[in-house]
């Protein structure tokens, strides 16, 4: 645990996990995202902020091709995961999503036991060879999601029976269990009460030691608390990006400043 600080300091040095260049997203004739260029660093939390409808969630969903499920949605430009274009014809989005996991706004545990929820990813991706390994993965994932101690005695109880905050941490454990390289979180705390929010935020901070985390939030305080990098979206444009401290204390763009001071949003 004592190497936490080195990780924190190393943020600026790690290379980008995801690089997006000139990304445009269209819903039919309407353009939702205009020419976004951004690098997502490894082992750090990147926050996307902006008023609602600014395109931050849409852009997040392009990073693991969740937009593929919407028939009228088109993505232009390139998004590279470790140098490989994820919109390449040869890429199977299913295989991609094993590397770029996602956690959603509303906790959505499957109507299965806690164990089966977490084991779902490893099972479908065939990550384990036997039951003992699977048990190990489930335990590790629940530990990483800071849920192990609360549920270790009732692994076979239904996941839907947990409290809201526990459910969201279960969903995080479920996403972590496939050992993704990048973890996308779409407003993971918006459906939670303040205490659960604090627990999940603490968890996010811990997760960056293993993963590259991208979080969409409408709460500037949350972005300031958990992220190292922040990107501000407005009306489909990526207005400004940089270190979180810089964005919040010394924004360069007047729109960012207006948002941060509460004049738009």
């Amino acid at each position: 645990m004592n190497d936490m600080r080195t990780v924190e300091r190393a943020v600026d040095n790690t290379e980008a996990r995801i690089t997006a260049r000139d990304v445009q997203v269209w819903y039919g004739e309407a353009q939702a995202i205009r020419d976004v260029n951004i690098d997502i660093p490894d082992k750090a939390v990147t926050a996307f902020i902006g008023p609602s409808g600014c395109g931050k969630s849409t852009f997040l969903r392009t990073l693991n091709r969740m937009n593929d499920t919407i028939p009228i949605c088109r993505v232009l430009g390139t998004i590279e995961l470790e140098g490989e274009n994820i919109y390449d014809k040869r890429v199977d989005p299913v295989q991609l999503r094993a590397k770029v996991g996602m956690v959603f706004q509303k906790p959505n545990p499957f109507p299965k036991s806690i164990y089966d929820n977490v084991a779902y990813g490893p099972r479908i991706h065939g990550l384990t060879r036997n039951r003992a390994e699977l048990d190990e993965v489930v335990e590790q994932s629940l530990r990483k999601a800071a849920l192990w101690n609360e549920v270790k005695d009732r692994l076979h109880a239904p996941g839907t029976g947990l409290s809201g905050g526990q459910q969201q941490r279960l969903c995080i454990a479920r996403a972590v269990a496939t050992s993704p390289e990048v973890l996308l979180m779409d407003e993971p705390c918006s459906a939670l009460d303040p205490i659960a929010t604090a627990q999940v935020e603490e968890l996010i901070d811990e997760l960056r030691s293993n993963f590259s985390v991208v979080i969409v939030t409408h709460s500037m305080q949350q972005a300031a608390r958990v992220s190292q990098k922040t990107a501000f979206f407005h009306l489909g444009n990526l207005v400004e990006q940089g270190d979180t401290s810089q964005i919040f204390t010394n924004p360069k763009d007047p729109r960012t400043e207006a948002y941060i001071t509460g004049r738009i949003g």
Partner: peptide
């Protein structure tokens, strides 16, 4: 949301 959860971690 259940489908999204499943697709989001790479299920077919």
């Amino acid at each position: 949301s259940l489908r999204d959860g499943s697709f989001g971690i790479g299920a077919t």
